[in-house]
């Protein structure tokens, strides 16, 4: 059974002016352990789709199934990472990364230790008792990753988590996130504007058209690139041809 099934999802935003169709007849299945990227012009409803998968909003029409069950009943299996870290400034790093455990009732000495161990493993040492403002942007986003992973979600939704970082930090974090997700065999959906990032990190890339959001095409990344870390993939000879292909595809989307 696929871990995620999106079945004929339609979603409309209603405002005082009008009702706008954000997503139109969207269908997609994702297998366990897969890494998918969503690429497309702004306004193509990618963030809306993530919110629907996360069970935060209900689709106007259609169904989203996680392991065969309705998405809104499966919130606990989803981890969501936003563009900015949104660490709570009044909580210490430890309190921040364990908040999910506390809210889901999974908090115990064991899970606390595991979470702190993960924090140290991804290079955040001696910051447990610090406050977020004392950390750099990259460190904060890493803490946000730990917060997301702490509750052991099966699917990770990454909503442009690297776009607010400087280029070098972004490349390092891509590798770190990729390795961490592979290690724990997580399924991930990444929303991004960066074609290179999509190719470097994912197994499949979903290209969206805008207004209303619709899947234009799904591109499979060659196995040669999938095996590499994102940083290596960017240097790989197969990288450039697929980049060109997606670039042209997106150009044609924007022109129509």
């Amino acid at each position: 059974m696929p871990i995620l099934t999106i079945d004929q999802v339609m979603h409309a935003y209603v405002t005082n002016q009008s009702a706008v169709l954000a997503l139109n007849h969207l269908s997609l299945t994702v297998e366990r352990g897969e890494f998918l990227s969503f690429l497309g012009p702004s306004g193509c409803g990618k963030t809306t789709l993530l919110s629907i998968i996360a069970g935060l909003i209900e689709p106007t029409k259609g169904r989203v199934l996680i392991e065969g069950k309705e998405a809104k009943t499966m919130r606990q299996t989803i981890g969501y990472m936003l563009q900015h870290d949104y660490l709570f400034p009044w909580k210490t790093i430890e309190q921040n990364v364990t908040i999910g455990l506390k809210l889901t009732g999974k908090y115990s000495e064991k899970t606390r230790k595991q979470t702190l161990a993960l924090l140290h493993q991804i290079g955040l040492r001696d910051v447990d008792d610090r406050y977020p403002y004392e950390l750099s942007g990259g460190m904060r986003q890493r803490a946000a990753l730990v917060r997301t992973l702490a509750t052991d979600p099966k699917i990770l939704l990454l909503d442009e988590p690297f776009s607010a970082l400087d280029y070098q930090t972004k490349l390092k974090l891509e590798d770190l996130v990729w390795e961490t997700l592979k290690q724990y065999r997580k399924t991930a959906l990444l929303v991004t504007h960066d074609i290179g990032e999509a190719i470097a990190m994912s197994d499949r890339i979903v290209l969206f058209t805008a207004k209303p959001g619709k899947i234009k095409r799904v591109v499979s990344v060659p196995d040669s690139l999938k095996a590499c870390t994102p940083f290596q993939a960017r240097q790989h000879p197969d990288f450039s041809p697929i980049f060109q292909m997606i670039w042209k595809e997106l150009e044609s989307i924007e022109q129509t």
């Binding site: 935060l56 606990q76 969501y80 908040i99």
Partner: peptide, 10 residues
């Protein structure tokens, strides 16, 4: 978005 973070943890 702070609420969104909390919502994702139910």
């Amino acid at each position: 978005n702070y609420i969104k973070v909390l919502q994702t943890f139910g």
